[in-house]
Design a protein around this nucleic acid. Structure first.
Lengths: 182, 182
DNA sequence: TAGATATGAATGAACG
DNA sequence: CGTTCATTCATATCTA
């Protein structure tokens, strides 16, 4: 099985082409736009190819083209680019700070600390606004694997808004979690 | 219910099971963040203290602090607050809508709603919401023209069937996606 | 093991 | 543009 969206694992939404008679969202919640995989692919490719803030005219054209794959409006295209661009930035920003996250304020004695590597890795492309579409497979951002243990049902019923004092058994130095670091 | 169910799964999330189980966990096998109980406690306390929408800086700091308890990224904190706030709101709203939804079935069955009430009663601290605990001003405000693009719904525009297929395996209609139409 | 529930993650829409 | 909200998808966990 392909993991990264090689083929199209998409079962697609409901209101799109596979619907015979009704066509456009019939009997649907009529809610928000639910892009088809083809639409997403095209938009992503456009973005990756450098297009970031399409003009109104471009939006129109893109929308027209994409309408072939399903119901779509210009505003959907507009929002898509807005969101995609914003989230790209946001993600980059967060990852950046995660890279230098291990800044614990109170380093009284940090014995077991630096072992949490936030393997920020490729933050993917830094495109340079070209004007030729190439249609390479779009990558997908990875996700950090996490660890931890989830079990227990012992509720540490201790509201204690401030001045933490974990009554548990922690082998790490006391951390300043009293909101004062905010 | 015939509605959507499984939109498109075109994304990420393949198992990066690189966990060697040498950590605080012993069974994690997926790329999804799994907060430790300490992390959840801190986050919950922060939330209960009134923090609902931490700024980017706050998110960073919280993430840094919590990274001591286990692997965590900024986006995890972001999502956590986002979800927590949304679900609290949603849960409260659910009761209201549920009353209306009750008309569909029977009204002589109050046991169901009683269950909701018990849940809601636990959330009686929504008036506080101090939102900003004690942080330096974050000037992320800017002023610009707030001009929204006038979207014209291009409903049944002419798809303009070109004769170009970007080699794929699906039987989508021919589409010119080389940006040449922009 | 299947269904229900809790919750992490994503994203369309929209706001300021 | 950055940020926020509403919904939905995807899993992990719990329970019968």
């Amino acid at each position: 099985m392909e993991e990264r969206m090689s083929g199209f694992c998409i079962t697609k939404a409901r209101n799109i082409s596979s619907n015979g008679s009704g066509d456009s969202n019939s009997g649907n919640k009529c809610g928000r736009w639910n892009p088809t995989s083809e639409q997403v692919k095209v938009l992503t490719d456009l973005f990756r190819s450098g297009l970031r803030t399409p003009s109104t005219d471009q939006i129109q054209k893109i929308s027209s083209q994409l309408s072939f794959y399903g119901k779509i409006e210009s505003k959907n295209v507009f929002y898509w680019f807005q969101n995609h661009k914003a989230r790209e930035r946001q993600k980059r920003r967060r990852v950046f700070v995660d890279d230098e996250d291990m800044m614990i304020r109170r380093e009284d004695n940090l014995s077991t600390s630096a072992r949490y590597f936030s393997e920020i890795n490729q933050v993917n492309e830094q495109e340079r606004v070209i004007e030729t579409l190439e249609l390479f497979p779009l990558n997908s951002f990875r996700e950090g694997e996490s660890d931890k243990l989830r079990f227990q049902s012992n509720e540490c019923k201790e509201p204690t808004p401030f001045s933490y004092t974990f009554g548990t058994e922690m082998d790490h130095p006391p951390l300043d979690l009293r909101l004062s670091f905010l």
